[in-house]
């Protein structure tokens, strides 16, 4: 069916683009889920002690590495196939 609609190369490119999107998007969801718990705890800690603000913000962004991984994967996909 694929052959009928588009050639093979286009199909691969499309799949790679979708994969790249999924890599960033799903990683983003994962990081968001991770950050939600940390963020809530950090806000609680800050409410107790204002001086925790800096450290709290920092802890909150730690899971963001996962998105960066996703992004790197998507770059590789885009460079390699699209």
């Amino acid at each position: 069916m694929v052959d009928a609609l588009m050639d093979y190369e286009t199909f691969v490119k499309g799949c790679a683009a979708i994969g790249a999107g999924l890599a960033v998007g799903l990683a983003g969801i994962g990081a968001g889920a991770g950050e939600s718990g940390i963020g809530a705890a950090a806000v609680g800690a800050i409410a107790e002690d204002r001086s925790f603000l800096g450290l709290g913000l920092l802890f909150t962004v730690i899971p963001e590495t996962i998105v960066i991984f996703g992004l790197v994967i998507s770059f590789i996909l885009m460079f390699a196939y699209v």
């Binding site: 590495t65 960066i68 790197v72």
Partner: peptide, 12 residues
Amino acid sequence: FGQIISYARLLA
């Protein structure tokens, strides 16, 4: 290795 990749955020 993961932490090296983590520097990609400078770009991202």
